[in-house]
């Protein structure tokens, strides 16, 4: 039936709904484009090699964000190193070992709860537990461990999802050849879930780059330039925290926008990488799981 044969009330309804949907979709697009353009226009003029490659000094007044960049890299590395074995292990337990459905339900409920807790609460508990109770003081390491707890659910989920796609027949084949459970996991299951772990790591990196509230009281605000291991034990601001401090407490909006532009490039890049990886792995899976595996 053609639309123009309908009674006027129905036509009006359709037209209104269409317009509202159009406007809503347009608002969504306009928001992200507006934010990106605004941040780049304001930030890019302030990005210079000098800004990127030096430490800040008070006398003479000078802003450099090299320490913040390094701290961000340290915190990403430290979090991922701790997070991957924990998250992947938990996922393997859920998919391969757990037989008691109640235990699985409890663990999954806990993971869902963790992903709903706001980052400021992580920051607070991280400060109480890692900085004070565990004696790490305000340090990059304490911040990284806090972020590990925050990001565990997401890496668990991606690993679990890829474990589900490892064909059951592979496991059965290995068992039939007389391999023990651990051997099956090491040789058949683990190689099969590498893609999930990688996707999880990329997603976690994106979240760590954008995180600030959880780091404020765990990793602190310092701008000292340190090596990796010394850096882990000393306080340091990541790019996001540095942005906050420059914008809110020091009124250095040029530097703040420069950092914001860098952060936008990084997070947009990493998020698109994550999306691409997900599609890519999915395609690999669909095309030929067996051929891919037979190479090993």
């Amino acid at each position: 039936m053609k639309t123009n044969q309908l009674p006027i009330r129905r036509r009006a309804y359709i037209a209104t709904m269409k317009t509202i949907m159009w406007i809503s979709a347009l608002i969504t697009c306009a928001l992200i484009i507006g934010i990106i353009v605004y941040v780049f226009v304001k930030g890019i003029p302030f990005i210079s090699w000098d800004l990127l490659s030096t430490s800040p000094t008070y006398i003479p007044h000078h802003i450099g964000i090299l320490p913040d960049i390094m701290n961000t890299i340290y915190i990403v590395i430290a979090s991922l190193v701790v997070m991957v074995p924990l998250g992947a292990g938990a996922a393997i337990y859920l998919e391969e070992y757990a037989t008691n459905q109640k235990v699985v339900a409890v663990i999954e409920y806990a993971a869902e709860t963790l992903s709903g807790i706001p980052s400021i609460i992580y920051g607070l508990v991280g400060m109480l537990f890692f900085c004070e109770f565990a004696g790490l003081r305000t340090s990059i390491l304490a911040g990284a461990l806090t972020l590990v707890i925050m990001n565990l659910p997401s890496i668990m989920r991606t690993t679990q999802e890829s474990l589900k796609t490892v064909p059951q027949s592979y496991r059965e084949g290995a068992f039939a050849l007389g391999a023990g459970k651990w051997r099956v996991i090491r040789t058949v299951v683990l190689p099969g879930c590498v893609d999930g772990i990688i996707t999880g790591c990329v997603l976690a990196t994106g979240r760590i780059l954008g995180e600030s509230a959880a780091l404020l009281f765990t990793a602190g605000f310092a701008h000292a330039l340190n090596g990796f291991f010394q850096g882990l034990m000393s306080p340091g601001a990541t790019l996001t925290v540095a942005l906050y401090v420059y914008a809110k407490e020091q009124g250095e909006f040029g530097a703040a926008f420069a950092i914001a532009a860098i952060l936008m490039v990084l997070t947009l890049g990493i998020n698109s990488l994550a999306m691409w990886l997900e599609n890519h792995f999915k395609k690999l899976r669909e095309q030929g799981y067996p051929q891919e595996k037979s190479k090993e």
């Binding site: 928001l31 954008g210 995180e211 600030s212 942005l243 952060l263 936008m264």
Partner: peptide, 15 residues
């Protein structure tokens, strides 16, 4: 666009 909005760090929204 939705994915990008989700990825923007909260401090950037704040700024």
């Amino acid at each position: 666009a939705v994915g990008m909005l989700a990825g923007v760090p909260s401090v950037v929204y704040g700024l």
